[in-house]
Amino acid sequence: MRIAVCIKQVPDTAEVKINRETGTLVREGVPSIINPYDMHAIEAALGLRDALGGKVTAITMGPPQAEAALREAISMGVDDGLLVTGREFAGADTLATSRALSGAIRAIGADLIVCGKQAIDGDTAQVGPEVAEFLDIPHVSYVRKIIEAEIDHEARGSIKVERLMDEGVDVVQAELPALITVVRELNTPRLPSLRGKINAKKTEIKKLSAAEIGLTPEVVGFNGSPTQVKKIFTPAPRCGRRVLEGGLEEQVEALVKELMEKKCL
């Protein structure tokens, strides 16, 4: 099975600080990591490859330093990395990003595409499904379990998964090629191996520009992004926390009274 994993290099939000005046992220000096949801996507892809054979390619769109994310994926066992890069891609929203990624996937060919459900910096959860739409293939988002996957010699196959929904779980089967986006419950990402790390140092990362995937500068990056940012602000900290005092009965009484006043009970 040819599997493509879309990953994104993001700032480690555990380390990020916010500039209170401008309301923007202070990115200087913040370490970059692979988006945590994408780690689960990598693990899912590696698990399927280990079981069914084939090859896993990690793909990312980003500046040259995003290569580090691809090498980290290779150190976990991914076979090779593909970096979609160039100045023309800068300022992309989810639509332009999906267009670029789908172009790269079309260029290499894939039976299954695995993405994290969303990135921890943008939190849109749009890129995975949009890539599937550009490729005109089925997609299943929020996958929490892969029940079975199969593929024959002519690349005909299917994947059956559990999709995590607010009100429960759907069991969905899709014909390949297909795209899935995954949630944390799916698996525990493996650590890198020493052979993987050595391999990651040596492997040459393939790079693709917009022209090489058949896209003009008008449809990628800032130019290809219809999203307009109206305002960026820091949400006001939630306040109003109150610690109830007194004996247990008094506290329960006060809590019930307050909840009734707020029409919660």
């Binding site: 650590l191 191996s193 020493l194």
Partner: peptide, 9 residues
């Protein structure tokens, strides 16, 4: 690399 990997584990 060996040191880093062992530390990560």
């Amino acid at each position: 690399m060996i040191k880093e990997l062992a530390r990560q584990i």
